[in-house]
Computed example of a mutant assay.
Amino acid sequence: MKFPSKRRAGAVVAVLSGVVLALSSTSAQAATDGPDVIAHRGSSGMAPENTAAAIDLAVRQRADHVEIDVQRTKDGKLVNFHDCTMERTTDVEDLYPGRPSYRVSDFTWNELRRLDAGSWFHDDYAGERIITLDTVIRHLQHTRTGLLAEISPCGQYGTTIATDLADNLNGKPGYVGKALARRQLAVQSFETDDARTFHDLMPDIPIGILDADRPTDTELVELSQWADQINPQHTVTDQTLVDRIHQLGMTTNVWTVDEPGAIRKMTTLGVDGIITDYPQTLTQR
């Protein structure tokens, strides 16, 4: 993952890898090399989102990174799931009829692991399961594909989900050290408080701010004091915004870019990463 040229991210990787020069990345270099290909919830245009099948397919398609969504079960297990409730992509209503809520946080891991998270996408994926963050890391850690983990914005967690993610990663120093050395790990959030909480706990891991709207210059300046990435929706992204983010020493990954014309436009703007449901469109694999 492309690091900002300004601050601690490059420094910590240099310490971990011992190769300082190899980890200096300017915006011009990023544009020359082309944007990182970030598989949105895995290769989710071709396999059921956030499942092992989608992650493994993204790896085979040689995506640079996989973007996932981190939530917490009732009994404290961190799982990879996007929606705050599970009706859209699982058979939770059939398996657990009459429950007052179908939020991820209202089910134990043993309950969640029984759900079919693949049939909604296609019969070929019947029986695909919800997977844990630990499983995601096991699928990625010996590959060339990195991890961009989004802290869930679901309101029931507050900032405790950011703390849980930091605790989980702190328990994996070997993985974190190698991933940072290879520029294969970052965290992002729509919630600035969550992002700041995580940053305070694990300042060596690059932190990004997601935004569906165009951030103001005042917001960008304030965020540049501690954030590493500004990750806006591609529809609000133009050359002025990309240049300003780079000028402030941050990088930018735009989302969710699937249409070929939009991919070409974002590449021309010099964005650092493109988050897409179809990574093979950019990798041609």
Score class of each variant (00 low, 15 high):
residue 1 M to Q: 14
residue 4 P to Y: 00
residue 5 S to M: 07
residue 8 R to K: 10
residue 8 R to L: 06
residue 9 A to E: 12
residue 11 A to Y: 02
residue 18 G to T: 05
residue 20 V to C: 03
residue 22 A to M: 10
residue 26 T to R: 02
residue 27 S to E: 09
residue 27 S to G: 08
residue 33 D to V: 03
residue 38 I to V: 15
residue 38 I to F: 12
residue 39 A to I: 09
residue 39 A to V: 06
residue 44 S to P: 07
residue 44 S to I: 06
residue 47 A to H: 12
residue 47 A to P: 05
residue 49 E to F: 05
residue 52 A to C: 03
residue 52 A to D: 11
residue 55 I to S: 09
residue 55 I to F: 15
residue 56 D to V: 11
residue 58 A to Y: 11
residue 58 A to W: 11
residue 60 R to C: 02
residue 63 A to C: 08
residue 63 A to M: 08
residue 65 H to G: 02
residue 69 D to Q: 10
residue 70 V to E: 06
residue 74 K to M: 04
residue 75 D to T: 07
residue 76 G to D: 11
residue 77 K to T: 15
residue 77 K to N: 14
residue 78 L to I: 07
residue 78 L to S: 08
residue 79 V to G: 02
residue 80 N to S: 10
residue 82 H to S: 07
residue 85 T to S: 11
residue 86 M to A: 05
residue 86 M to P: 06
residue 87 E to T: 13
residue 88 R to N: 11
residue 88 R to P: 04
residue 88 R to W: 07
residue 90 T to F: 15
residue 91 D to Q: 01
residue 91 D to P: 00
residue 92 V to Y: 03
residue 92 V to E: 04
residue 95 L to Y: 13
residue 96 Y to L: 11
residue 97 P to S: 08
residue 101 S to G: 12
residue 103 R to V: 01
residue 105 S to Q: 15
residue 106 D to G: 10
residue 107 F to R: 10
residue 108 T to V: 07
residue 110 N to R: 09
residue 112 L to Y: 05
residue 112 L to F: 05
residue 114 R to G: 02
residue 114 R to Q: 14
residue 119 S to D: 04
residue 124 D to G: 04
residue 124 D to W: 12
residue 125 Y to N: 07
residue 126 A to H: 13
residue 127 G to R: 09
residue 132 T to P: 05
residue 136 V to S: 08
residue 139 H to R: 15
residue 139 H to C: 03
residue 143 T to L: 08
residue 144 R to M: 04
residue 150 E to Y: 07
residue 152 S to W: 06
residue 152 S to T: 14
residue 153 P to C: 04
residue 157 Y to I: 00
residue 160 T to A: 12
residue 163 T to G: 09
residue 164 D to S: 15
residue 165 L to A: 09
residue 165 L to R: 12
residue 165 L to M: 14
residue 167 D to L: 13
residue 167 D to T: 15
residue 171 G to R: 13
residue 174 G to D: 13
residue 174 G to Q: 12
residue 175 Y to G: 02
residue 183 R to E: 14
residue 188 Q to D: 11
residue 188 Q to K: 11
residue 188 Q to N: 11
residue 191 E to T: 10
residue 203 P to L: 10
residue 207 I to G: 05
residue 207 I to T: 15
residue 207 I to A: 10
residue 210 L to G: 04
residue 210 L to Y: 12
residue 212 A to E: 12
residue 216 T to R: 03
residue 217 D to M: 14
residue 223 L to D: 00
residue 224 S to C: 03
residue 227 A to I: 01
residue 228 D to L: 01
residue 229 Q to T: 06
residue 235 T to L: 09
residue 235 T to G: 03
residue 236 V to A: 00
residue 237 T to Q: 03
residue 237 T to G: 02
residue 239 Q to K: 06
residue 239 Q to A: 11
residue 240 T to H: 10
residue 242 V to A: 01
residue 246 H to P: 00
residue 247 Q to C: 00
residue 250 M to H: 00
residue 252 T to D: 00
residue 255 W to A: 00
residue 256 T to K: 06
residue 258 D to H: 05
residue 259 E to G: 02
residue 266 M to V: 03
residue 266 M to K: 13
residue 272 D to M: 06
residue 274 I to M: 06
residue 275 I to C: 03
residue 277 D to M: 01
residue 278 Y to T: 00
residue 279 P to W: 14
residue 279 P to Y: 13
residue 279 P to H: 13
residue 281 T to V: 09
residue 284 Q to N: 13
residue 285 R to D: 09
